[in-house]
Design a protein around this nucleic acid. Structure first.
Lengths: 363, 363
DNA sequence: CAGACTCCCGGAAACGTTTACAGCAAGCAG
DNA sequence: CTGCTTGCTGTAAACGTTTCCGGGAGTCTG
């Protein structure tokens, strides 16, 4: 009894030593059998039996130390309550799973320290690689990304010279698509409900909105612009503030959550959508098809970006020496009832879109 | 040069040996300084300098092998697109973060093999513990849970004698609350849109619905019962099927996603909510406050269950010898416009509920 | 029947940390 | 001046695996 104790791990669980001793073979043989490489029939039987008897389960940490890989990949996003990240995650997951790895998700809650802390912890070898989609990027942050000890792919805008794999979209142009569509439908008092301007997407969308109006020769009325954060409640509150001081005939929202909040505020204020106010969201998440009326939305290809990011990551894991790469996904606009020129009485009874959605209208 | 190479890790990254050699001290001293315990001022300076020069970052895997802990906790849920899990996750995250650990989420997609695989991989020591919320539980599954090498807490119904920490709610009673409310409001042709009957929550809700009707002496019309899965599209499709063959004056839905699908189907079919058909969802997620009209919903205390599960897990990590514990969270009903007796013209302009939401009506 | 070849086995090193232990120098009380 | 304490240091073991390598037994070929 006393000597058996020496073969157990600190917490009393069996190790490969336990199994080997019980089977009367060396740990090398035990390990080989357990990994299904080599071993005589007799040895295999003995080891299997011993393992089953003691309930052996290998310690993945120890294995990883030896093999230099964990088979895990992480995705860090700001807010897992945002369906755009859910779509991205699903796309990533399917690529990652196909490579025999497992995907883990971490919600940073937008706290930048949290995100850097994640990089400085997880990245220190608990995962084989990670995909991050930061909404704010500081120098500190960038530095952490650049000298991460594991491969990192960034989804989102990044400084042009940052030596980091990066898949992006052009949300500036995306906002432009929405504005073009609304102007073509005869709307002129177009409002904009945005997220924080100190975030990368917030800034890009603001710039896109202003540029688009200018392109159409429409003077921007600042009372038609409101800012909250990227979630539902803020979108609703921001829209209420906006409605209290101005009368838009259309509203562009920086994402679908904000748009749903805006829809709610509009309906509660007795405005008809799209008759009185046309509404366009952004990200084209499944949420856009869950509202009544269904929401027009600018697709930024989140699933596609996720898929590409995952592929970049896997190829970099396979060959860390690759030069930094950058990919771009074009935005497109899906027009639905919330901005239809002739309001539909009944939304199309469409099934949810198939996986690689084809853009309804492309830039 | 040649000998320095021997101190680097396989992929060329610096190790504690690299730092020690460069600083001219032993690895023990280097490690001590790096961990902030001991060291003379001179040694500290030299080690810090050397570490900075070579860009040393500790290998967390190696550290974990030694310390027998990773500081990571995992949450495995079926569908991360379901807001009920988002709420649960947020609650868990805050408890876990307060203990200095990091939370990782894995979406199993309901594939049971996926979930067991997760247990058999992650649980093999990559994380210090995990919380799982399975919707199907097989014997295999249960076995994997029971002899998991790391602490596990299950959120959801489990066999009474399963020796696993468990926090549950009573969704049978929960469905009863919804039915009671609708009956009290004078509804009699109450329909039910459920998820798969071979899942634990699906079965419980079905039983609860039938029991509640029986309690009120209402004969169940099977044409008023439909089944899909637990997501939006299926909920909408199921409701369309139901409406095609029967005329309910109220609808109970097995979760909020289904309820939103049902709301959409009802509006598309020209039914007014709540005037023609009253609607009650379940889980009381933020989604229920994002629809128009706002959705009545049975709260199953997801945030509370998450919080408690996290606490159970942390205490078990601290003391693995604890006996298995079981906690229960009571359901409650939040009545909103979708089932209000006198339909509200304007939904309450309520801010999103504060974190520990107080139930509007309790059993 | 000798030699080459195959297969299986066990010892030991390695992965990159932390830490128990012992040695050693310096400081101080007696 | 001696002996004890204090504070640092380096050596080496440990965490639980996988894997390289050399040796031994068996099989096949010539």
């Amino acid at each position: 009894m006393g000597r058996k104790r020496l073969q157990e791990s600190a917490d009393g669980r069996p190790t490969v030593h336990t199994v080997a001793a019980r089977a009367g073979v060396s740990i090398a043989s035990a390990s080989r059998v357990l990994n299904g490489v080599g071993g005589s029939p007799e040895t295999i039987r003995k080891v299997r039996e011993a393992a089953a008897e003691v309930g052996y389960v290998p310690n993945a940490i120890a294995r990883s130390l030896q093999s230099q890989r964990t088979g895990l990949v992480a995705l860090a996003v700001e807010d897992i309550g945002n369906p755009v990240y859910v779509e991205m995650m699903r796309a990533i997951e399917s690529v990652v799973a196909a490579s025999g790895r497992q995907l883990l998700v971490h919600a940073t809650g937008g706290r930048i320290d949290n995100e850097t802390a994640l990089l400085r912890r997880l990245a220190h070898r608990y995962v084989d690689g990670m995909i991050v989609s930061p909404i704010r990027v500081t120098d500190d942050h960038l530095a952490a990304l650049v000298d991460s000890p594991v491969p990192v792919v960034v989804v989102g805008q990044l400084a042009a010279d940052a030596p980091v794999d990066n898949v992006r979209t052009d949300s500036r142009t995306g906002v432009g698509l929405a504005v073009d569509h609304l102007v073509a439908a005869g709307r002129r008092r177009i409002g904009f409900v945005n997220g924080p301007l100190d975030t990368v997407p917030g800034a890009a969308r603001d710039a896109g909105f202003r540029a688009a109006l200018a392109r159409h020769g429409i003077a921007l009325d600042e009372r038609l612009v409101e800012v909250g954060d990227f979630r539902y409640a803020a979108g609703r509150a921001a829209t209420e503030r906006l409605l209290a001081r101005a009368a838009p005939d259309a509203l562009v929202c920086a994402n679908d959550l904000i748009a749903v909040g805006a829809l709610h505020a509009l309906l509660a204020a007795g405005r008809r959508v799209p008759d009185d106010v046309a509404l366009v969201g952004m990200d084209d998440t499944e949420l856009a098809r869950m509202t009544f009326p269904q929401l027009s939305s600018v697709s930024l290809g989140s699933a596609e970006r996720g898929r590409r990011a995952a592929e970049l990551l896997l190829s970099r894991i396979a060959d860390p020496a690759l030069p930094p790469r950058r990919e771009q996904v074009a935005p497109s606009l899906a027009v639905r009832a919330s901005s239809a020129t002739a309001p539909l009485s009944v939304p199309a009874p469409a099934e949810p879109a198939p996986a690689p959605r084809t853009p309804e209208v492309t830039a």
